[in-house]
Deep mutational scan, measured.
Amino acid sequence: VTVHVDGVEYDFDNPEEALKFAKKVAEDKNGTYEVHGNQIRVT
């Protein structure tokens, strides 16, 4: 699973970890996250 944040890609073997990371980053920057299959984009 790849999490995209501001043009940087973070790869996770564990989808739950990826989702947790995306949620935290989105909260920290008052943004949102979208899941597209095995890609998660934080905006």
Rank of each mutant, 00 (worst) to 15 (best):
V8C: 09
E17W: 04
V8Q: 12
I40C: 01
D13V: 11
K29D: 05
H4K: 06
T43E: 12
V25R: 07
G31T: 08
Y10C: 04
F12W: 03
N38Y: 06
T32Q: 10
F21R: 00
L19N: 03
D11R: 15
N30H: 12
G37C: 08
D11S: 14
P15S: 11
A22P: 01
T2L: 06
E16S: 09
V5M: 06
E9I: 15
A26N: 02
F21E: 02
V1N: 05
I40Q: 00
E16V: 11
F21L: 02
I40T: 01
Y33A: 04
V8H: 11
K23C: 06
A22N: 00
N30A: 08
K23V: 10
K20H: 11
V25A: 12
E9T: 14
E34F: 10
Q39P: 02
R41Y: 15
H36C: 14
Q39M: 11
E17N: 06
N14V: 07
E34P: 01
A26L: 06
R41V: 15
A26I: 06
D13K: 11
K23D: 05
Y10V: 05
V35K: 05
K24T: 09
K29Y: 15
E16M: 10
V35T: 05
N30I: 04
T32N: 09
T32H: 12
F21C: 04
V25N: 06
H36K: 12
F12T: 00
K24P: 01
R41G: 04
Q39F: 12
V25H: 08
E17R: 05
K23F: 05
E9R: 13
Y10G: 00
K29W: 14
E27R: 13
F12N: 00
E17K: 06
E17V: 06
I40M: 03
T32K: 11
V1D: 03
N38E: 05
E9P: 09
N30Y: 07
H4Q: 08
V35G: 03
T2Q: 07
I40A: 01
N30P: 03
A22F: 01
N30Q: 10
E9F: 11
D28A: 14
V5E: 03
V42W: 02
E9S: 14
A26Y: 03
A22R: 00
A26G: 03
F21I: 01
V3F: 02
F12P: 00
G7N: 08
G37E: 08
E27N: 12
V1T: 10
K23R: 10
E16D: 12
D6W: 06
D13W: 09
L19Y: 08
K23T: 08
V42R: 00
A22D: 01
Q39H: 14
D28E: 15
F21P: 01
N14T: 13
E17Q: 08
H36V: 14
A26D: 02
E16F: 09
H4C: 13
V1S: 06
D28P: 03
T43R: 10
V5I: 10
Y33C: 07
G37T: 04
T32W: 14
Y10D: 01
N38L: 06
E9L: 12
D6V: 03
G31V: 06
D28M: 14
K24W: 10
N14M: 06
L19E: 07
A26T: 06
T32V: 10
E17I: 06
V35H: 06
E16W: 11
L19S: 03
H4G: 03
L19F: 09
K20I: 13
T43N: 14
V8L: 12
N14K: 07
K20S: 13
H4V: 13
K20M: 13
A26W: 03
V25F: 07
V8G: 05
I40V: 05
D6E: 09
V1W: 15
G7W: 04
N14W: 06
E27G: 10
D6S: 06
K29C: 12
E17Y: 05
V5G: 01
A18Q: 01
E27Q: 14
A26Q: 03
A18K: 00
F21A: 01
G37W: 04
G7T: 04
Y33S: 02
G31M: 12
K23H: 08
I40Y: 04
D6H: 07
G37S: 05
L19R: 05
P15V: 15
K20A: 15
D13S: 11
V8F: 12
T2S: 08
P15L: 15
N14I: 07
N14L: 08
D11W: 15
K29P: 03
P15N: 09
Y33V: 13
N38D: 09
T32I: 10
A22C: 05
E16G: 08
E34V: 13
R41N: 14
F12M: 02
V1E: 02
T32L: 07
N14C: 11
P15R: 14
G7V: 03
K20L: 13
E27L: 13
Q39W: 10
G31F: 05
N38W: 05
A18T: 00
A18R: 00
D28W: 12
E34S: 11
P15Y: 15
A22T: 03
H36M: 13
N38K: 05
L19I: 12
V42T: 02
A18W: 01
F21M: 03
Y33W: 11
Y10K: 03
N14S: 13
V1L: 07
N38C: 07
K20F: 10
A18M: 00
V42P: 02
V42H: 02
K20P: 03
V8R: 12
H4L: 14
V35M: 10
K20N: 13
V3C: 03
R41E: 10
D11V: 15
V25D: 02
F12A: 00
P15Q: 13
K29V: 14
K29G: 09
D11N: 14
G37L: 06
E27S: 13
G7Y: 04
D13H: 09
V3Q: 00
K20D: 13
A22W: 02
V8A: 09
K24F: 08
V42Y: 02
G37R: 04
V35C: 08
P15G: 09
K29A: 09
G31R: 06
Q39N: 11
N14R: 07
K24V: 06
E16L: 10
